[in-house]
Design a protein around this nucleic acid. Structure first.
Lengths: 205, 205
DNA sequence: ATCCTATTCAAGTGATTGATTGATTTTTGT
DNA sequence: ACAAAAATCAATCAATCACTTGAATAGGAT
């Protein structure tokens, strides 16, 4: 029963692993560009330079593909926070993580918008996300108490602004470009944001 | 030849106008909820309580529907700015305009993400958008010069933060809720944001 | 060589969807 | 009441798409 009709894709050989990864990478691009409903499995296969039925073979179809991507995103999220970083470094890291992988970020926004076909993300995963955010808020508050950044603004606000400015270039690139006057993905934009945030959170003299 | 097969939808009678509007309203909901690729014309018709072929009859199909919506959005954008408002009032107005019409806002984000089937927005319209943003920056800068808000932060930054915090609840509601700990569409959130922005832009004593 | 895995090929199925057509019914204005 | 407009109904079309099936072929390892 274990390998009745189809061979079990779980026992991945060393060589096959690479094409799996290429398919996933292509899927990130395609889903990021078109969203789930707009993405085409044929396009994913073409991007990966691979035959179309391999995605059914390895991931059980389009839906299985997004689920695998979500799993990876969850795993990646767990290990991001650099421990002994300053506020500016922390913000810069988050900014880089978001803007260096625009496809991933677009994918996240699409999921948040309810792109359809999503099992609405399990409670467990949602709870973990909440914890991550709460910890981030707590970390920010500690920075305030230690005097690294100002206590004039709520910790939640400081954090929210940083996150919002990281995602705005993805969700509304034209708007950001129109206001900031620079490519929202560029190094210039990031440094400018970090600098302005530093001023915003500077302690009153 | 003028009215050979189909009657001309342009000469809209007074009564028909209402169903046109209902279809458009339903379209905003559906497109806002699912995006262009995910939206279904049948669902739009059902939402409007109207027969499915009316959307072909009045708007020439799914695509014509989004185009009409884009036209309306462009028109609505032109006349929003209250003239003699304070910074806080202006921010609050923008926040309300965005969060009181979440479907419209979601639609905008979807278009910005390149939902597909879009003629990629004409140059003319893009230029007009740019002008609007530049004027907003200019207005902010004037506020700084007049001493209404601080000059410590760049005018572009002050504006961008306000806009980003208006759209974040739409693009990433879970994240905002997790950080702020409140419904991102609620009055509480809006007032909190306005208050924090006021502190952020307060002049140094 | 040969076995096993990875990958490709060709063809086709089933389901969904947007759109069309022609005729009929309801509503509206006069 | 009458005529035009507005809307519904039923049936159908053509296209797209994800997925399946049953093979055949290429490659690497032994």
């Amino acid at each position: 029963m274990a390998s009745s009709g189809r061979r079990a894709p779980q026992e991945h050989g060393k060589a096959a692993e690479r094409t799996r990864e290429r398919i996933l990478a292509a899927a990130v691009e395609e889903f990021g560009a078109k969203g789930y409903a707009g993405a085409r499995t044929a396009a994913i296969a073409a991007r990966a330079g691979v035959n179309q039925q391999l995605i059914s073979y390895y991931f059980g179809g389009k839906q299985g593909l997004v689920e695998e991507l979500r799993r990876r995103w969850a795993r990646a999220q767990e290990s991001v926070t650099p421990p002994g970083a300053t506020y500016a470094e922390s913000v810069a890291a988050h900014l880089d993580a978001t803007l260096d992988n625009p496809d991933w970020s677009r994918l996240v926004i699409w999921q948040a918008l309810g792109d359809g076909s999503s099992p609405e993300s399990d409670d467990e995963w949602a709870a973990a996300q909440r914890d991550r955010l709460r910890q981030a808020v707590e970390r920010t508050r500690r920075r305030q108490e230690e005097g690294e950044i100002t206590g004039e603004l709520d910790a939640e606000f400081v954090l929210l602004v940083a996150y919002a400015l990281a995602f705005a270039p993805i969700a509304l690139p034209r708007m950001v470009e129109g206001i900031a006057g620079a490519d929202p993905l560029s190094k210039d934009y990031r440094e400018w944001v970090v600098g302005q945030l530093a001023r915003m959170t500077a302690r009153q003299p």
